[in-house]
């Protein structure tokens, strides 16, 4: 199709011309907005929070529907083969009970040892709990939408975890919902430790659901497939000893690992206080500087 030709009508010619000028103006405004977004990522946080509040109820409602459908399907599946499953679960329960006794003994011993050493233990309190209802499934960045916001006490920068492991941290907050930077995002760097040896490593997302684990010390590759990575608490944002990822393969000096908390499969996520509240201080000072 050829371009619209306005013909001899002066009005149509002007209309086309002004729409062209308006488009160029729109482009200029867009470039300015984008420059602000890149240079000062907090500049539009109120707008982004408001947009989250506008869209999160839709996502949340749709999530309820899909969760119900999935629940019906898997609920029906559970009745299948129920008798043998029951026996298996009973055996598992008995084995677990033994382990639980051992674990509680160890816990008690640990508490006594810590008291002897007079270690001050920082308890991390849960701020809010919510469901992961959506994600940035169209973009190279890895964000998720959590159904808890400012009205539940969530603030930008707080760590988010699931029972299985670390999920990420809050980067945008509306009053009803918040946006989480997942550990698999490229910009999310988590100080961590190799559980087997205690060696300090850092984890950085790869943008495709997995994370890259890099040792801090140069040397031969310390990883083995199946190794567990836990957070170290360095930096004060993420609490220590939270399970983070499991190594699946080695890659040069680094390792590729899968996060233990799969955001697609976790039903509940818990927002916690930053491990050391001072970790939030530079962030909030930076906020004040910005107009």
């Amino acid at each position: 199709m050829a371009a619209p030709r306005p013909g001899w009508s002066r009005r149509a010619q002007y209309g086309l011309f002004f729409s062209f000028i308006a488009a160029i103006l729109g482009l200029a405004i867009g470039l300015i907005l984008l420059a602000f977004s890149i240079a000062a990522p907090n500049s539009f946080k109120d707008f982004r929070g408001a947009a989250l509040d506008g869209t999160a109820p839709i996502t949340g409602a749709l999530h309820q529907v899909t969760a119900t459908v999935q629940g019906l399907a898997s609920g029906a599946g559970d009745y299948w083969d129920a008798a043998s499953q029951n026996g298996q679960l009973k055996r598992q329960r008995d084995a677990m009970r033994e382990q639980l006794t051992t674990a509680s003994a160890i816990l008690q011993e640990n508490r006594q040892l810590k008291a002897a050493l007079q270690l001050r233990e920082q308890t991390t309190e849960a701020v809010a709990a919510g469901r992961l209802v959506g994600s940035s499934y169209q973009s190279p960045r890895r964000f998720a939408i959590l159904s808890a916001g400012k009205s539940d006490g969530v603030q930008v920068g707080m760590p988010v975890r699931a029972p299985q492991g670390l999920i990420g941290r809050v980067i945008d907050v509306g009053s009803l919902a918040s946006r989480i930077l997942l550990v698999s995002d490229r910009a999310n760097i988590v100080p961590a430790r190799l559980l087997r040896t205690g060696q300090a490593v850092i984890s950085q997302g790869r943008g495709d659901g997995s994370v890259e684990i890099k040792p801090l010390e140069v040397g031969r590759n310390p990883f083995k497939p199946g190794d567990l990575i836990i957070t170290s608490g360095t930096g004060g944002l993420y609490p220590p000893l939270v399970p983070l990822a499991r190594v699946v393969r080695l890659d040069g000096d680094n390792a590729v690992a899968l996060p233990l908390a799969n955001p697609a499969a976790t039903s509940f996520a818990i927002v916690e206080q930053p491990y050391e509240p001072e970790a939030m201080a530079p962030l909030s000072e930076k906020d004040k500087e910005l107009p």
């Binding site: 869209t55 839709i58 996502t59 949340g60 749709l62 999530h63 899909t66 992961l132 209802v133 959506g134 994600s135 940035s136 499934y137 169209q138 973009s139 190279p140 960045r141 890895r142 998720a144 698999s184 943008g207 495709d208 659901g209 799969n262 955001p263 697609a264």
Partner: peptide, 18 residues
């Protein structure tokens, strides 16, 4: 644009920008 609100929690952002 509103299709971005679908409750899909994906590990990778491979969906097109509808």
């Amino acid at each position: 644009i509103l299709l971005a609100c679908l409750p899909i929690v994906a590990l990778s952002g491979w969906f097109p920008d509808f």
